[in-house]
Amino acid sequence: MSDTTLSAAQRLVGVDIQESETNRAVVEAIEADNPDCSVQHMPGLVRITCPGRLVVNRETVEERLGREWETHEFQMAIVTYFGHIKEWDDDEIVIAWNH
């Protein structure tokens, strides 16, 4: 296990999202903004992983949802994540490793 010396940009980060109507838009937005991500469906959950960095953009979510969406609302969707929350402001949420 410790022979893996991948850089922060290569190691996977990810987020698990509850499966729901609203969250489908969030998942679609993440897929659109993170072309390298992979999406896995588990009971009640959608799991999205990306190498190095995962971003959630408010505008992309709003386009898909057809209404205003504040990034705080991501708290209603997220079940767990791995990586660090590097940024969480009005416009985007970024999950990445630091080192």
Binding site: M1, S2, T5, L12, F82
Partner: peptide
């Protein structure tokens, strides 16, 4: 059954923590 303990352990611990987090904390 949802997933076995072994699968859960590999996914949530080996992959996410050993290969993700602890590489970061090595810093």
């Amino acid at each position: 059954k949802v997933m076995s303990w072994k699968e859960a352990f590999e996914l949530y611990f080996e992959q996410q923590m050993m290969q993700g987090l602890f590489q970061d904390l090595a810093f």
